[in-house]
Design a protein around this nucleic acid. Structure first.
Length: 507
RNA sequence: GCCCCGUUCGUCUAGUUGGCCCAGGACGCCAGAUUUUCAUUCUGGAAACCAGGGGUUCGAAUCCCCUACGGGGUACCA
């Protein structure tokens, strides 16, 4: 029988979630929905020293904005809770001890300082110290201590960690849905700490135990986890959970757009694109990192951008809604190599959504911008029409002001380049005539166009010359949509007023 | 250092079983068209000899090996 698909996104709340994480979550979500399964949010806060206040809410808010919804987990509940590892704290130790009992793990009493020293010594000899099958026999642990000594130490409350005991000379196979089979020899692996001296499990233990208890069917996570996948596979074996072991899929990483290395938090503001879904105010440094939302990206665009960073549908279609992505998504179309973020393409995606979106929706988003510029009392119809005329010309709502401000305030100055090129001593006289036409002709786009064109033709004038002067007087620059659309929208009196003023100023 | 993963236009990538690929699409770039301007739009173009070198084969981007380069890991972080 097919197992029910259950996947999880399991971030640790150590700061804002970056887009690599968002993409991982997205792929999990798409996979779950594609197969009619469940998508859960589990918070992995086993490292108490790295906890950052606000990070958890940030994560939840990010996915709410993106429209990626969890079926279960922190913030939504479910039958397998709690979904925050710190709230499951008590549950892990028995599992670790079970492994000690059945010989798959052992207590270790070496202090962090002692191990540090060993590492430094090894380093001095250009070697690497590893706590493994070759060294554990010489260290302080339940494999080397006598039974009485061990008993004494445990009874006295001395702190310890529990380490996994890798068997010697074993080829460990990991089946990866993206990479195929990966094999590694156990002698190369170190005896990872499963349970820390502060009473918390490490990622490895908590992850495997929780995935098992939460009946996770597929683990889709970043490639940085591939090296520890053999450990996880062995843990399932050690617990006797081989049948319940999820399938693994390790995603390629998101790389810096320039240079080398994986995308980091710092890259965003350095290179002019956000690495976070939402703006993040660091509680400690009070540093602000920009977010897609605040930069004016549409959530649909961000989804689309991220989906295509490391995956593609194999067709030439590039624009997909979230639901369409669910339809066509599959893990075997994920590429193996890392992807660099392309800012230009990201803008293009946003532009595509700008084209698609109804003016009404854009108007809603533009309203706050107008208010910030002190523009009040604009009718929603007027605003909407401005958006209809202008939205195709920008990538972001925030650029709309630059493109369309003249619809709300008369030009204060006139682009000098254009003045120099187009305005001459006869311009004012002609514009006054055109102003008269505007006042007498039927006030619709087509009629106005024809009348003005007639005037220009009858007087053997240059179309470009006159039209550009007219535009200059209304807009103040050589930009904007169709001139007669502008005139009709601005209205008769405003248009003539602007023409008159331009004639006065420019002579 | 050691281990693992990867490598097709500047970027994202198609190319899954070797022949239809002297490699296709998209972004960006360049040119032209349209236009009263700017932008959109449309048309066209430059752009990867498939990391390099060896094989296997009648035939390889596609299979094998080596090298180089890139990335990840190597913590009582996730």
């Amino acid at each position: 029988m097919e197992r029910r698909v259950r996947v999880r996104f399991a971030p640790s709340p150590t700061g804002p979630l970056h887009i690599g994480g968002v993409r991982t979550a997205l792929y999990n979500y798409l996979f779950a929905k594609k197969h009619g399964g469940d998508f859960l949010l589990r918070i992995e806060d086993t490292d108490q020293t790295r906890f950052v206040p606000g990070a958890e809410d940030y994560i939840i808010e990010s996915f709410r904005w993106l429209g990626v919804n969890f079926d279960e987990g922190v913030g939504v509940g479910g039958n397998y809770g709690p979904y925050k590892q710190s709230e499951r704290k008590e549950l892990y130790k028995p599992y670790a001890e079970q492994l000690v009992k059945n010989g798959w793990a052992y207590y270790a009493f070496d202090t962090a300082e002692e191990l540090d020293k060993l590492r430094k010594e090894a380093e001095a000899q250009k070697k690497t110290f590893q706590y493994d099958c070759n060294t554990r026999g010489n260290l302080c642990n339940s494999l080397t201590l006598s039974a009485e000594e061990l008993e004494k130490r445990l009874a006295s409350g001395e702190t310890f960690v529990i380490r996994f005991k890798f068997p010697k000379d074993t080829e460990i196979e990991v089946q990866d849905l993206i990479r195929g089979q990966v094999v590694i020899n156990s002698n190369l692996l170190d005896d990872k700490v499963l349970f820390k001296s502060d009473g918390m499990p490490t990622y490895h233990l908590a992850n495997v135990v929780d995935d098992y208890l939460m009946k996770i069917s597929h683990v889709i996570r970043g490639e940085e986890w591939l090296p520890s996948a053999p450990l996880h596979v062995m843990l399932y074996k050690a617990f006797g959970w081989e049948k319940e072991m999820p399938q693994f899929a390790h995603l390629p990483l998101l790389l810096k757009p320039d240079g080398n290395g994986k995308l980091s938090k710092r890259d965003g503001d350095r290179l002019g694109f956000p690495v976070f879904p939402l703006e993040w105010h660091d509680p400690k440094s009070s540093e602000i990192s920009s977010g897609y939302r605040e930069q004016g990206y549409f959530p649909e665009a961000v989804i689309n951008i991220l989906a295509f960073l490391g995956w593609n549908p194999g067709t030439e279609q590039e624009l997909f809604s979230l639901n369409e992505l669910i339809d066509v998504f599959s893990l075997d179309r994920i590429s193996k190599s890392g992807a660099k973020f392309d800012l230009e393409k990201a803008k293009w995606f946003n532009h595509q959504y700008m084209l698609q979106k109804p003016a009404k929706e854009i108007a809603q988003l533009f309203l706050p911008v107008l208010q910030s510029k002190g523009i009040e009392n604009v009718s929603s119809e007027y605003l909407e029409q401005v958006c209809t005329l202008s939205k195709d010309r920008v990538n972001f709502v925030s650029e709309l002001w630059e493109q369309a401000s003249f619809f709300f305030q008369a030009p204060e100055s006139y682009d000098e380049q254009v003045v120099k090129k187009r305005w001459n001593e006869t311009s004012a006289a002609h514009l006054k005539k055109i102003s008269e036409i505007l006042n007498t002709a039927a006030f619709d786009k087509q009629t106005l166009h024809d009348e003005v064109a007639n005037y220009i033709q009858n007087n053997s004038l240059n179309m470009g010359q006159i039209m550009n002067c007219l535009r200059l007087s209304l807009v103040g620059a050589a930009k904007g949509p169709d001139l007669f659309e502008i005139i009709v929208l601005l209205g008769k009196s405003e248009s003539t007023k602007r023409i008159t003023k331009a004639c006065e100023v420019l002579g």
